[in-house]
Design a protein around this nucleic acid. Sequence first.
RNA 1: GGCCCGAUGGUCAAGCGGUUAAGACACCGCCCUUUCACGGCGGUAGCACGGGUUCGAUUCCCGUUCGGGUCACCA
Length: 545
Amino acid sequence: MDNKKLAELLFPNVDKTPEYYETLYPPRNLPEGARVTRLGPSPTGFIHLGNLFGAITDERMAHQSGGVFFLRIEDTDNKREVEGAVDVVIDTLSYFGVEFDEGAGKDGETGAYGPYWQRQRADIYHCFAKKLVEDGWAYPCFCTEEDLSDMRQRQEAEKANPGYYGKWAVHRNWSLEQIEAALAQGKPYVLRFRAPEPEGKYFKIKDAIRGELSMPVNDMDFVLLKSDGIPTYHFAHVVDDHLMRTTHVVRGEEWLGTLPFHIALFAAFGWKAPVYCHTAQLMKIDNGIKRKLSKRKDPELSLDYYKSEGYLPGAVWEYLMTVLNSNFEDWRLAHAAAPIDEFKFSPNKMSVSGSLFDIDKLNDVSKNYLATLDSETVYKYITDWAQNCDPEYYELLTRDRNFSVGMISIGRGDKKPRKDISHWKQSKEFYSFFFDELFKMEDPFPENVPEEDRKAILTKYVETYDHSDDQSQWFDKVRAIAEELGYAPQPKLYKKNPELYKGHVGDVSSVIRVAVTGRQNSPDLWCIQQVLGKERSLARVRSNI
RNA sequence: GGCCCGAUGGUCAAGCGGUUAAGACACCGCCCUUUCACGGCGGUAGCACGGGUUCGAUUCCCGUUCGGGUCACCA
C-alpha cells in the first residue's frame, strides 16, 4: 500500500505541513514548573457544578504555578450546539470567579495558539490526519451505520468484545484500488486509527490525581475524522493539546476509559502526552441511588440555580474547595481570614471517589462566609441580587438605604457574629418582618400567657416605652412589667420556684417579640426596634392590644 | 456482559503496618442566654465481606460483594 498516495488522495487540499504548525505554535516561554491548563466545554449551554469543579481545578493549577489557563470551545458535534452557549459559559464562570488568560472570548479570541474554536481548526486537523495516513497510522473506513450495527449483533452473538478492531476492522487492509473505487462512487467514509498490534496487554500511566493506573493497551480502530471531516474528541484533544502546549489535562473520570486511545495517538505522532488529572465526579443521591450529576436530570445543580438562589460565588468556591482538596478545611480553620488564593492547591490531595453533593454543608460554609462580610458589602450584594432576581425585594431594600443597612447590621461585626443567612433568597424570608409589606404574624403568642396578661403587658409596654432608652434601660422596664404582672424577673428565679410565678421575663419579652416581629424567634429585639423606629414598633404593639 | 476506577460513621473526609481510628456538616444533650442565632462542652455513629502476608492489619496481596464510569461518525 502506498500510504503517501493514499494521503494525497484523501487530503488533496492540505497545503501545510506538520512542521509548519509546529513552528507556528512553538513551545510556550514560561517559567520552570508553570502549568498550562484548559477548559474545553462543548457549547451545549448547560454548565453545572461539576464543570465549575473542574474549572477551579484547572484555574488553580495554572495560576498557582505561574502558567496559563485558556478556554477552547469543543464544538465538533454540531447537533448539540446551542446558540449563545459560549457567552453563557464565560459569563457563568466569570460570575463564579473563574477567569481565562487566553482563548475563546465573548468578542473573538485572544492568544497566539488559536483558533480556539475547534470547528475553525479543520485545516490543522486535516494536516495532521494526512500525516497519520502517510505514516500508516490511519485509513478510511466506508462502513455504513447498518454495517456497524450488523457487526455489533454478530459480536454479541459470538460474545466478542464490541468495537471496530482486529478481524472486525473490515476496511483496515483495503487496497488502494478498492479505496479509489469507493471514493469514485462518492461513498462517505470516516478516517480510523490503525491500532498497532499490542505488544503488552497493559501499560502503566501516572495520573496526577489517581497515582499509577494500569490500562489495557488500545486495540481499537477508533474514529479520527467523522464523515463530514470534523474530528472526534479523541483526535482533536491530541492535536489541540499538543499544539496549544497544554501541560496538564484536567477532565472527568468518564474519560478514563478512552485514555488508551489518547496515549496511542500521542505515541503515533511521537509526541509527549500531557499529565492527566482525572477528577472524581460530583454525585447525587436519587431515590437512594448514588449517581453522577446529570445535565438533564438535575437542573437544580446548574450554576444558574446558585446564582438565582443568591449564593455568593466566594461561598460556592469555598464549599467546592472543601470537596476538592481534603486539607482545605484544616487550612481554613487555621487561617480564618486569609484570602483563598493563599491556599496551596494540589491535585494529589483530590479525592479519587465521587463525592455526594451536600447542600447542608454548602449552607454551613456559606453562612460562615457571609458572616465575615460587613454590612455595606452585604447591602451591595443583596441589592445586586434582588435587582435581578426579586424586584419586589429590591424595591423594599433600596427604598431607605440607611434602614436596610441598619437591619443588616444587627448582630454583624461582633466577635461572635450571627449566622442566619446562607443565601440571599433566604434573607428575604429572614428580614421580611422589617417591611410592613411582608410582615405577617407567623407565630402565635406564647401559650402560657393568658390573653388578658398579654394585653396588659403590651399596654404597659406602650406606656413606658422610651425610644431613647439604651438596651439595659429598655430591658429593665420589661423586667418591671414582668414582675408587676406576676412573672419572674429572672428565669432562674422561676426555675427555682415555679409555683410562685405565672412564668418569667422570657415569656413577657416573647409577647412583645411576637407583637413586633410576628415571630417567637428573632435577633435582639431592642436592636430591631431601633431600626424599625419608634412609631412602627409601637404601632405593631398597639395592634395587638 | 467486557474493561477501568473506587469502597473509613447519615454526608465530606484524615490515616499511608502498631492510633483511645483526627476533623467538618447533620443529628442529640448540656452550658451561656429574655427568644433565636452565635459561642463553649459532651454524645450517638465508621474501617463492606472472606482469605492470605506479618509478631501485628483500616493500611499490603488475592478473591467476593457493592457502588460508579465506559464500551458512538457525543463530548
